[in-house]
Design a protein around this nucleic acid. Structure first.
Ligand SMILES: [Mn+2]
Ligand SMILES: [Mn+2]
Ligand SMILES: [Zn+2]
Ligand SMILES: [Zn+2]
Lengths: 163, 163
DNA sequence: ATTCAGATGCAAATCATTTGCAATTAGTAT
DNA sequence: ATACTAATTGCAAATGATTTGCATCTGAAT
């Protein structure tokens, strides 16, 4: 084996059909191949959908927005696990028992938080985060390693306040 | 009605049997009666158990520790809802799909956070929290009201680091 | 075209939590 | 102490999100 590898596919096997035209990002293609996973229509479709979202979206939400139930709900679950493992999406939980995901743009670790309305579930993206020092202090104080955190804010949005 | 109310129960209807001897706290008794809810063996048992815990405990965990499955799992679920509504316990979620609860000691709003080991699930109680100003800034910036937050830390505890 | 590990659809299985309902019980009134 | 009624409970069945077994299908290398 080995060699110059000119046998690589020209990255456009997406010859119509399947889940519609979802141009495979070289990004996705490379990451997947590195793990010998495949560039499938479902995965491309899901990533393309995530690209259009500006807030976390649930798996059911993804499924319903995918072109005419083209892909099975179980496949969306499996795909999100895969993408999460590849650090291409990030999982959030707002406490309602439903996981939500956001696309991780290349080079972005995606660390940020949300302000969620407890009445209508509208979301504001929050970039601020002064937790770094606290994490360090914590690691030092309790001997923990690789300390991270999950932080979400809740409240009542302006629109919902106008009873 | 009204009057001196000498018809009140002497708060010790717990004449043996039932869920064992679980002295009813006047605290519990009063809060419950105020809402015309009843002082039952299950509720006393659960509160007494919670009193012995120093970290959040799951509903199944409570159920299993209760004297010989004396009380139904569904009853524990219902009791925790009640107690949460009465602000006698606080709910925490560590992201594993299981809710955990802590007793709210009288006069304490119980606001604090946790440092959870992602390998063995051991927990460190964290009192520090400098989130107050952030909440205010957020309320001001986005017009949200009653802003609160959920914050938990994750990492690898000293014991689990010693692979 | 051939080949086969990786993916998918579909249905059934899990898991945590909730709910309907008939039987039981706490707290009050008699 | 007895009676009465709403609150509570046990038990089983229902939910809802997520996972999984398995036969079939497909991507990508040869
Ligand atoms: Mn976000
Ligand atoms: Mn705690
Ligand atoms: Zn942060
Ligand atoms: Zn805090």
């Amino acid at each position: 084996m080995g060699g110059e590898g000119h046998h690589d596919c020209r990255l456009d096997h997406c010859h119509g059909g399947g889940l519609g035209e979802h141009p495979a990002t070289p990004e996705l293609t490379n990451r997947l191949r590195r793990k010998s996973r495949r560039v499938t229509g479902a995965r491309q479709a899901i990533l393309n959908l995530l690209r259009t979202q500006s807030h976390p979206i649930s798996i059911r939400g993804i499924f319903e927005r995918l072109p005419q139930g083209d892909c099975d709900l179980a496949t969306v679950y499996r795909s999100m696990h895969l993408l999460e493992g590849m650090e291409m999406v990030k999982r959030y939980e707002f406490g309602d028992g439903v996981a939500r995901f956001e696309l991780l743009r290349d080079g972005d670790d995606g660390h940020h938080h949300h302000l969620v309305c407890t009445r209508c579930a509208s979301v504001v993206e929050i970039e601020e985060c002064g937790m770094g020092q606290l994490e360090e202090r914590m690691a030092a104080a309790y001997g923990f390693a690789a300390v991270t955190h999950k932080l979400e804010f809740f409240g009542i949005c302006p629109r919902c306040q106008g009873v």
